[in-house]
Design a protein around this nucleic acid. Structure first.
Length: 443
DNA sequence: TCTGGGGTCCTAGGACCC
DNA sequence: TCTGGGGTCCTAGGACCC
């Protein structure tokens, strides 16, 4: 009998909702190109490699998320699909606008990704959660142009399932509320969602479940709890509980600072020389160091990596180096120096490199100061002074770069602005909302 | 010819300790 | 022939998400 009874747990009456932007990147492009409404449209990943966003018309053609562009050339031609390079400056700005509207309406929210936000509606003033949500859908649409869907349920996992229902049924006006369903409809919703589509059940576990005859969310919810935990660990158990209406994944409001920050990118053209790699690694280091400073953190560990193409027949090589700092840092110059030293040790001549990147982890808040064993008080004081000086300079540079919108001030090793091997972005739309030069012109 | 980027969490197993 | 037992901490790798 669904939902399964779970001993010792009383269900709290929670109203968790998830707001999901429909085909977000595509919707962003359509805001400024309304003639593309109802026309098949896709947005590509970096280097114009894979499809990362699809309009409904494209989904209907059976084009899957992540498909490389070259594999669908024929379909693109045949159906006259509109193609865009990814324009993260635009998407980031529109996302920010959507989230601001949500923040204005609810106290408890968790921005989950660029296009998704969980909210807790349990304690909002309005008693009709569905009406509140339909209103939110309308407000977001009229003030940003972005269509969204909202699912409301006792748990995050069920809410995610409900948004999918909301997207499929136009007459729901963008909102599906689990609490509005009778027993049979709830059961039907679960029966109609494939086990692999459940939030938390991924590529690796889907076949495992299917082999046991578990094909739908309903099948999964009806499994034996112990068997779920044994096979899919505590993560699977949480999902199982959530499908049985027991909240087990908390709303992460007041977000924690990031625990790791990465900057990685594949090259638009073959890279072979150490000098080119130095420039790209320096650029990545500058990026993560800036983000570290922005969230007021310092890093204990810096990892750099370089790799050749995973595909194709040319010789493959990948390697990484891990740098431990004695004192946590967010200094671009110090991190660059160490990163380049490390790059020397992993660079091998004769390969065609395709990608490089850096990751910082073991982050600590700025204010925590790990005392090095060998530091006495005088060196400490001097260090503090040096640090303050550097911090002043760096924050000035950060502010200047933010204001100008580009990273104009940077270390010499990064080199000139544009490299031949930089990202390919041949189909980029204008950054309508963040650059004056590219603002929409009304004729 | 052409195949993204940036995160989080959990577990198993080794190192180390008493 | 014998080769404890139990704890903690750390890391690499896997699984997941968008």
């Amino acid at each position: 009998m669904y939902p399964q009874k779970i001993e010792g747990i009383t269900k709290p009456n929670k109203y968790i909702a998830v707001i999901d932007c429909n085909n977000f990147f595509v919707s962003c492009e359509r805001v400024f190109r309304p003639e593309l409404r109802n026309k098949p449209t896709i947005v590509l990943s970096n280097n114009d490699g894979c499809v990362v966003a699809r309009s409904n018309e494209v989904k209907a053609l059976g084009i899957k998320m992540g498909t490389p562009l070259f594999k669908i050339k024929d379909l693109v031609k045949e159906h006259n699909i509109a193609i865009f390079s990814s324009n993260f400056e635009l998407y980031g700005d529109l996302s920010h606008r959507v989230m601001s509207i949500i923040k204005n309406k609810v106290q408890n929210y968790e921005i989950y990704s660029i296009d998704e936000c969980f909210i807790d509606l349990t304690d909002i003033y309005q008693s009709d959660k569905s009406e509140f949500s339909r209103d939110l859908v309308r407000t977001i649409k009229t003030s940003t142009g972005i269509p969204v869907s909202i699912g409301i349920a006792p748990t995050k996992t069920l809410a995610k399932i409900c948004t999918k229902v909301a997207k499929k049924n136009i007459d729901l006006h963008g909102v599906c509320n689990w609490y509005d369903q009778d027993f049979d409809s709830k059961k039907n919703i679960l029966i109609n969602s494939e086990v692999g589509d459940i939030w938390g059940i991924g590529r690796a576990n889907t076949p495992k479940l299917q082999l046991q005859g578990v094909r739908t969310a309903y099948d999964f919810a009806m499994m034996d709890r112990k068997s779920v935990k044994k096979q899919f660990t505590i993560m699977g158990e949480r999902t199982w509980l959530e499908l049985n209406e027991i909240p087990s994944i908390k709303l992460a409001d007041n977000p924690e600072p990031k625990k790791s920050i990465a900057s990685t990118r594949s090259f638009g053209e073959d890279v072979t020389t150490l000098e080119q790699l130095q420039k790209s690694i320096s650029g990545h280091v500058a990026q993560v160091a800036y983000q570290l400073r922005k969230q007021k953190s310092k890093a204990n560990i810096l990892i750099i990596f370089i790799r050749t193409n995973n595909f194709g027949t040319r010789p493959k090589y990948h390697n990484h180096a891990v740098i431990h700092f004695d004192i946590p840092t967010n200094s671009t110059s110090l991190m660059t120096k160490e990163a380049l030293k490390a790059l020397n040790t992993i660079y091998e001549k004769g390969y065609y490199y395709k990608k490089s990147g850096v990751v910082v982890t073991n982050l600590v808040p700025n204010c925590i100061r790990q005392i090095n064993l060998f530091e006495d008080e005088n060196t400490l004081r001097k260090l503090d002074l040096d640090e303050q000086k550097e911090e002043k300079l760096v924050s000035m540079i950060d502010r200047y770069n933010e204001k100008s919108g580009f990273r104009i001030v940077k270390l010499a090793v990064e080199g000139e602005n544009k490299h031949r091997w930089d990202n390919k972005k041949q189909l980029l739309s204008n950054r309508y909302t963040t650059r004056w030069q590219e603002i929409l012109k009304v004729k």
